[in-house]
Design a protein around this nucleic acid. Sequence first.
DNA 1: TAGATTGTTAATCGATTAACAATC
DNA 2: TAGATTGTTAATCGATTAACAATC
Lengths: 212, 212
Amino acid sequence: MKLDKVPEVVIQRLPRYYRYLGELLEEKTNRISSMELSRRMGLTSSQIRQDFCSFGEFGLQGYGYNVKYLREEIGKILDLDRMKRMIVVGAGNLGQALANYQFDKVGFELIGIFDINPRLNGFAIRNIKVMMMDALESFVQENQVDIAVLTIPEEAALDVGMYLEKTGIQAIWNFTPVDLNTMLHICVKNVHLDENLMTLAYEYKNLLKKQA
Amino acid sequence: MKLDKVPEVVIQRLPRYYRYLGELLEEKTNRISSMELSRRMGLTSSQIRQDFCSFGEFGLQGYGYNVKYLREEIGKILDLDRMKRMIVVGAGNLGQALANYQFDKVGFELIGIFDINPRLNGFAIRNIKVMMMDALESFVQENQVDIAVLTIPEEAALDVGMYLEKTGIQAIWNFTPVDLNTMLHICVKNVHLDENLMTLAYEYKNLLKKQA
DNA sequence: TAGATTGTTAATCGATTAACAATC
DNA sequence: TAGATTGTTAATCGATTAACAATC
């Protein structure tokens, strides 16, 4: 039963399946049952079969799933094969850290870094020199840019976000604490680290309470 | 109807409520209705009332919610008041970036940074010198450490995670791509940046498809 | 063929939305 | 008092789990 639209919750789980299947491949395992995979991942086998069913039929009765094939299919759904071109906007600590990350494996290639601080002008990270923000517009016109990683201070987030949208960039990976997705019409994924840490604080409190 | 256990999904939303209520406070708004808040946040008013109801009664019929009071109560639930002591393990790009972050606002104080690279020994970030890993055990014994931020390479993640658990640290904010929560018995929050980026790739693909 | 395991339907569980009596 | 808005119950929706016929 191949659905037209894969449910959002399933999409959220795909990268994790992709990683586990990659690990299996490294262990030279070329087939796996939903039961065995469920044990490894801490899910139910029902959920795994239901998830895979939502975007196609990848298994074989009495056999299980072919690891390599299943992994490739998930990669296709997530569009990991096609290279996307990425720039980092905001070359502070976090921006530099992300610029050093190896996102090539998941299909992202870093082609530019931008900042407003003149002292960073020309400073190179992985052979890519930091450019000034006023050079961004022409850069986007001359180079196809798929996605901008936004690592600037909160105060500038909305302005720069709207500016990026205006240049024609259609996806933003947003590390500022501003909910840009509700304000822009392009594709935005928020990473709110502070919110994540707050939920950890809650869980930690509960752990301590249980021990007391 | 105050529930014994606040549902996980509600907890995930609390930091966002906390942030919006903080913004309202800065605008000197001291009361808000579920209807008005729902407009701002892009939720339904029903959900907001249902969420708040799950951990108490904070509103007043015909009036709405007192912004300052509601925010404080959410802060208490998340345990943001009590200061937690935090160390960063792995002083690479990401570790340094996080060490520079201001997490004091949400109740976390950085008290130590650790790495295995001797060249970083003594290098200071925000007045905190990087220490070598072999000094970690005695450091934990002499200082109460609540949480470790784990920003080390994937290969070392499991070993160091188990080591941290053994020292008595009870919470890990895990930035490695390893699912430590399934392997350790302490409180672990995973931040899998690569997985997050993969779901952005999926959404971006769909956006392009819609336009074609 | 017999055993194993999928794909899929049905049952359950939980979360969101709608509705409205209670009450400020 | 009249209007507004909560707290809460009921209805709906969606996601997870259970079960099993189909089939390799």
